[in-house]
Design a protein around this nucleic acid. Structure first.
Length: 436
RNA sequence: GCGCCCGUAGCUCAGCGGAUUAGAGUACUUGGCUUCGAACCAAGGGGUCGCAAGUUCGAAUCUUGCCGGGCGCACCA
């Protein structure tokens, strides 16, 4: 969720700066995690019985698979024989991918669950307003990754060690990482190399921004260092942005973790749920666009990098530095414009000090956004929008707009203010309705 | 053990290509609506900027050490 929100904001930011942006997603449909999940699924089904998948309720599929993943992970760590079976299953998945096998029992289970997983993510992304132009399943880049690494092994970029193919990161002040396992399977590292190659193939990008959690910072540094050895251009054009974890604020303010990688922890949908609940308690209504604004803004207002502590009540609040506050500020400005009716906004050079101050602040927008583009840091936009709305509220408190001799000029300022808020919020991926 | 990130008001955070009395929000106290949406505005209290050195005319900001927290360090993703 956090990754998606950040990705959207960064994409919007670069797009409004004039770049052509391709939003793509990378997801794991092959690999040990699949083996783990599949293992637990088969156990649950009492063997490789794809017909029994029908007994899983439609709306419980994601949860069912998530449980299987947790169970599979536990078995992998605790049970030696299960571990071997899982490793075997993992291999089989690669094989049935290669053979385009859709008929065997295992293949049927795999493809069905894979589809369920995609359906789930599609629905989720739609819900939060994210959309991807392309989706790279790991299976689609595994082969190229494997091939590239093997080729560069011959060129001396990678080397063999205990039967595996590794990149000696410690020659570069980093750490060593396995790219191809001794089983001959590509690891995430090799797939990431394949992914970058595939993206290059598809887009010939000037800049590729990769966004992940910060636990992958060192890992990605190794991948990029390896890539630099044989594709320096691509490595240089790739930027890795990392964010921290989302923790839910408790009464004392310290947090509990949220991760989709482990079980029984707060998941993305849970965050939306607590936000929705907070919104309902606060407004007495269900306002999906407000809830989304609350969550997105709460995530984005902080500088990228560290963990964030998410407070649902504060996030949906209409007071303070929140998404809903800005939505409200925008709606209020729209309301003023509506009230003005026929009076047309007309800019003028003849400004009073308060008007001048507001205008100056409005003109800072381009500077702030420009800097955000350079830094790839959206949070400064949040700060700016909030301070702008405070500035406006001060102005509005002391100056009449409608039914004032200076109405047309001031309406022009209000117009500009509403537009600025809307543009800024749009970059953040937040809707700016005219009424709230 | 090594590496990366972080430590700023009670809480959540800006500020960190060095510069006037360190800023927001929130919480607390107080004042302001017969007037454009008061979901707002104004005022106040609250900080050894983790600690200690160093560089500098000047350090929250740069360097080093220490303390505290998070993450990562070979066949997982």
């Amino acid at each position: 969720l956090y990754t998606s929100v950040v990705g959207d904001a960064i994409s919007n930011l670069l797009e409004q700066a004039g770049a052509t942006v391709h939003r793509v997603n990378f997801g794991g449909d092959v690999g040990l995690h699949v083996g783990k999940t599949l293992w637990a699924i088969c156990r649950e089904l009492g063997g490789e019985h794809p017909e029994k998948l029908a007994t899983v309720p439609d709306d419980g599929r994601a949860e069912w698979m998530a449980k299987a993943y947790v169970a599979g992970t536990a078995a992998y760590e605790e049970d030696e024989s299960a571990r071997k079976e899982i490793i075997q299953l993992n291999k089989q998945v690669y094989q049935l991918q290669a053979a385009k096998d859709h008929n065997s029992n295992l293949a049927q289970i795999y493809w069905t669950c894979r589809q369920w997983s995609y359906d789930y993510f599609d629905a989720f992304y739609a819900r939060i307003g994210s959309h991807f132009e392309k989706y790279y399943p790991e299976s689609s880049v595994a082969d190229t990754g494997l091939a590239v690494v093997k080729k560069q092994l011959a060129n001396g970029v990678f080397k063999e060690s205990d039967g595996a193919v590794i990149f000696a990161g410690d020659d570069h002040g980093l750490h060593n990482r396995v790219f191809i396992t001794s089983e001959g399977l590509p690891t995430y590292e090799a797939k990431d190399v394949g992914l970058i190659m595939a993206k290059w193939q598809d887009y010939h990008f000037d800049l590729s921004v990769v966004i992940t959690g910060n636990e992958q910072a060192d890992y990605m540094a190794v991948v990029l260092k390896a890539l630099e050895q044989f594709e320096p251009k691509l490595a240089a054009a790739t930027r890795h942005l990392t964010h921290g974890m989302v923790k839910l604020a408790d009464e004392k303010g310290s947090g509990s973790k949220m991760s989709s990688r482990k079980g029984n922890i707060l998941r993305a949908v849970d965050v939306l749920e607590v936000a929705a609940t907070a919104n309902r308690e606060q407004s007495g209504k269900d306002q999906p666009e407000v809830v989304l604004a609350a969550v997105k803004y709460a995530f984005l207002k902080q500088r990228l990098g560290g963990d964030i502590i998410y407070d649902p009540v504060e996030s949906v609040s209409l007071t303070g530095n929140s998404g809903p506050y800005l939505q409200y500020a925008h709606a209020r400005a729209c309301s003023i414009l509506a009230k003005a009716g026929k009076v047309t906004p007309k800019p003028s050079d003849d400004l009073e000090p308060a008007e001048r101050a507001l205008l100056r602040n409005l003109m800072m927008y381009n500077v702030v956004v420009g800097q955000a583009v350079v830094d790839l840091l959206p949070h400064s936009i949040c700060t700016y929008l909030y301070e702008l709305s405070q500035e406006f509220n001060r102005f509005y408190e002391n100056n009449r707009v409608v039914d004032d001799p200076r109405a047309s000029l001031r309406l022009a300022l209000v117009r500009q203010y509403a537009d600025t808020l809307k543009r800024g919020l749009t970059i953040l991926g937040i809707e700016a309705p005219e009424h709230i």
